[in-house]
């Protein structure tokens, strides 16, 4: 069934947009209801586009009303528990911190840049699919993705993350001799 097919990813997408776990399921439910009502066999192939269009619109609407500061995972707490003089553990924590820093940078992007990043990099939507969901030209989407990547790079470098280490599939913060 369509709901089962899209549900988990949609809830998580709404969460990434709003930063609110408590309302992500309500947003998804609302998007399903709106997308399914006019749904029939003729327009079945357009369900995904229509559903995500509604999901993004509803997420932003709710986010504008209720957005709270993005919750920061308890990385420090985790570090205190796990730092057992083990470089692998330090590496893992550094990677998690890198992910968190990058997610914060994504969530700080403008609406137009944030949504293309979430659709492209989390939902694996093609440029064409994003253009359909957002009613934009493909060139516009490409341009937004380019700008978003540039801003994300600048933002995380500003916060001390060394982008050159990404090629090692790791985030490493400057000043760490081993990690």
């Amino acid at each position: 069934m369509l709901v089962e097919m899209y549900s988990d990813k949609a809830v998580r997408t709404a969460y990434l947009i709003t930063g609110r776990v408590d309302i992500a399921e309500d947003i998804t439910q609302e998007a399903f209801i709106q997308a399914i009502i006019p749904f029939n066999k003729k327009n079945a192939q357009f369900f995904k586009t229509r559903f995500y269009k509604i999901l993004m619109r509803t997420s932003w609407k709710v986010a504008a009303r209720t957005k709270e500061p993005i919750q920061v995972d308890s990385i420090e707490r985790e570090a205190n528990h796990n730092l057992a003089d083990c470089f692998d553990v330090i590496d893992t924590i550094a990677t998690k911190q890198g992910y968190e820093a990058l997610y914060k940078a994504v969530s700080a992007l403008s609406k137009h840049l944030n949504e293309v990043v979430v659709l492209h990099y989390y939902n694996d939507f093609s440029i064409k699919e994003i253009a359909q969901v957002l009613n934009c030209r493909e060139g516009t989407i490409r341009s937004r993705l380019f700008k978003a990547r540039k801003l994300l790079t600048q933002e995380i470098m500003k916060n001390g993350w060394d982008v050159s280490y990404f090629e090692d599939r790791r985030f490493r913060k400057e000043g760490h001799s081993h990690v």
Partner: peptide
């Protein structure tokens, strides 16, 4: 590679929540 890290970052954040598995029922009831 940077693009892969963006994906990993979003997946990592998204996986911190566990959506309930009753969405189909919720939609049906509505």
């Amino acid at each position: 590679m940077f693009e892969r890290m963006i994906t990993n970052s979003l997946i990592s954040k998204a996986q911190t929540i566990n959506p309930r598995q009753d969405m189909a029922d919720r939609v049906k009831k509505s």
